[in-house]
């Protein structure tokens, strides 16, 4: 296996990013501005730093495709259930149109991509949530794809790595979206009983219904630095307690300190950390 950093060498061939889709101050999209520190960086350089600000270490959000590309071994990804698409079960105003718009804008069918691949040669079942798809909210399709992934992993006894990100349950599917919390958590329970490793990676932001279900049920829970991790939205808490929340509240560092996660891992170290964990959980010859 090549050294991890080598995976990012010599890949300056071409850029498929549409300039208009990049949040920058520059109209041509050559430059990106850091949300946290305001630093302007040449977009290509930022990308080669895995979309982590050189100056302050801020971890930009990644698309599902980007996350898979930097996590899995090259060419190893096989997608599952890509044909599952959301219906409009309670005929929620504007939902059908919103779905269509989002599909067009993101090129994604839904807020989670699931499949299998290898990390450092170790087979994994992998799920990646993409915040650009309606805030990676969990509706019927997200719940179904995640549950199917856990079930597949249970049957095949292959570890699961889930990159979580979500604004919560998808309100537009009413109570059906709420119940996906139960569906996915129950599927986690079965994976756990089968003795198969589940690593949950909390990325910015992992909140509400997703945090209160499969995201929190990993045997090992990792977070990216600075990720927002919390059950209740900060505005709601501030309205309840009628006080401003301190800076850093619900950050990855905050939840680590409070014992809710195992570790914080920087993006550039994520793949090798996952590979090490997978190696340590490799199934020995099961004698008897």
């Amino acid at each position: 296996m090549p050294a991890f950093k080598d995976l990012f060498k010599g890949k300056q061939k071409y850029v498929t990013v549409k300039p208009t889709s990049i949040q920058t101050e520059q109209p041509d999209g050559l430059w990106s501005k850091c949300t946290r520190c305001g630093q302007l960086t040449y977009t290509r350089e930022l990308a080669h730093n895995l979309l982590v600000c050189h100056k302050c270490g801020f971890h930009f959000k990644l698309s599902a495709a980007q996350r898979l590309a930097i996590t899995l071994d090259e060419g190893s990804f096989v997608e599952f259930d890509s044909g599952l698409v959301s219906a409009d079960p309670i005929e929620f105003p504007g939902y059908a149109a919103k779905l269509e718009r989002t599909r067009q804008a993101t090129g994604l069918e839904e807020a989670v991509v699931t499949g299998q691949g290898t990390i450092g040669g170790y087979p994994v079942m992998i799920g990646v949530m993409d915040f650009s798809f309606i805030g990676a909210s969990m509706g019927s399709v997200v719940g179904e794809k995640v549950a199917r992934l856990f079930e597949r992993a249970t049957r095949q006894r292959v570890p699961v790595v889930m990159f979580c990100a979500s604004g919560g349950a998808r309100m537009q599917e009413g109570v059906l979206s709420l119940m996906q919390m139960a569906k996915t958590s129950a599927a986690c329970a079965r994976l756990s009983e089968a003795g198969v490793l589940y690593v949950s990676v909390l990325t910015n932001p992992t909140t509400a219904g997703v945090l209160a279900s499969f995201a929190s049920l990993g045997d090992i829970i990792i977070a990216e630095p600075g990720a927002l991790i919390g059950f209740t939205g900060q505005r709601v808490i501030e309205e309840t307690i009628r006080q401003k929340l301190p800076p850093g509240f619900q950050s990855a560092e905050f939840v680590l300190e409070h014992g809710m996660i195992d570790m914080i891992v920087e993006r550039r170290d994520m793949k090798k950390t996952l590979a090490s964990l997978l190696a340590l959980h490799e199934r020995r010859h099961e004698a008897g």
Binding site: V15, T35, Q66, S132
Partner: peptide, 30 residues
């Protein structure tokens, strides 16, 4: 399933730019 394009991008192997797809690095627009 009509996601060959996606699979290709995702399998690009460690290149954020090539894997960016139509969404691109969106920054923190949300």
């Amino acid at each position: 399933a009509a996601q060959e394009e996606f699979a290709e991008a995702a399998s690009a192997g460690g290149d954020v730019l090539r894997a960016a797809g139509p969404a691109g690095p969106k920054g923190e627009a949300n």
